Amino acid sequence: MAHYTVALTGGIASGKSEVERRFRALGLHVADADIAAREVVAPGTPGLAEVVQAFGPGALGPDGTMDRAAMRRRVFADEAARRRLEAIIHPRVRAALRAACEAAPGPYAIAAIPLFAEAGAEAYAPWVDRVLVVDVPVEVQLERLLRRDGIDEALAWRMIRAQATRGERLAVADDVIVNDVPLEALDAEVASLHRRYLLTSGAKPGQP
């Protein structure tokens, strides 16, 4: 069981998934908040029932799952609705991530938490030991988000501004990867951090 956890965070379209992928390739267990967020509102869960109770049947798609695209448009146009949805999902996600990291094999685990800064470090203080922020300029976020999601610029800006600012994320960082470089440059940075985390977590030489 892992006894050391690193929170991996960053703004939308900062390239967290590329960093996460590299930690996985090194044999690390990664508990992903985006995956957990889907699981806690899967059909038949108390989480989805609470979403429907709060937002009505329009929150569901034809297949009975939460209509994530429709809900995204809804909550990014209405701050009160966004906070209501977050109050349903986020506590369940935090509990799932903690359980996954504590049960993970290896000397340390990665918890990929996009909204770490928004929740506040104190929400994770009991079990997160270090925070790694993937950082890019806001202009890079916007360009990547438009290209990735095929949305209009107005929605893209609402999504960016709904998150913590770049400065707020950096304020909670123990380590920072500036991800406005070619992807291959990430390999060396992640490998260096991995060696540091192995030492910090007390891993013995030869452990993954």
Rank of each mutant, 00 (worst) to 15 (best):
A95M: 04
K204L: 15
R21C: 06
K16R: 07
R169Q: 14
G58D: 12
A173S: 06
I110H: 05
E102H: 15
E86Y: 03
H90A: 09
Q163C: 03
F55I: 01
L48P: 03
R195H: 10
P205W: 13
D129K: 09
V75R: 07
M66W: 00
R82G: 14
P62C: 00
R22G: 07
D135H: 08
R130Q: 12
A123D: 04
K204F: 07
H194C: 02
L146W: 03
R82S: 09
A25T: 00
H194Q: 01
R21D: 15
D34W: 12
F23S: 10
E118G: 02
N179I: 06
S14V: 11
V136T: 07
F76A: 10
A37D: 11
V30R: 13
G27A: 11
T5F: 00
E122W: 11
S17D: 11
R144L: 01
V52E: 08
A77T: 10
D32L: 13
A95E: 15
V140F: 01
A103K: 15
E184D: 15
V176L: 05
I151A: 01
L146M: 04
R169A: 14
A54K: 12
L142H: 07
G202F: 06
R72S: 15
L186E: 08
A112I: 00
V52S: 11
A111S: 12
D152K: 02
Q53G: 13
A25S: 13
M159E: 03
M66Q: 09
P46Y: 10
A191V: 05
D129G: 14
P137G: 07
L8T: 03
D175F: 01
F76S: 08
L26P: 08
P126Q: 08
A112N: 07
S14N: 13
D67C: 13
A173R: 03
G206L: 09
V6A: 04
A81P: 02
G61F: 09
L142C: 10
F76K: 11
R166S: 09
G150T: 04
A54H: 05
A125S: 11
R161Y: 13
G206A: 10
E39N: 08
D180E: 15
R196A: 11
S17P: 01
V176P: 04
L26Q: 10
D78P: 01
R196L: 12
A117D: 12
I88H: 07
A121V: 08
P46I: 10
D78G: 01
G15R: 03
G47H: 05
A121S: 14
L170T: 02
R144D: 00
M159L: 12
S17A: 06
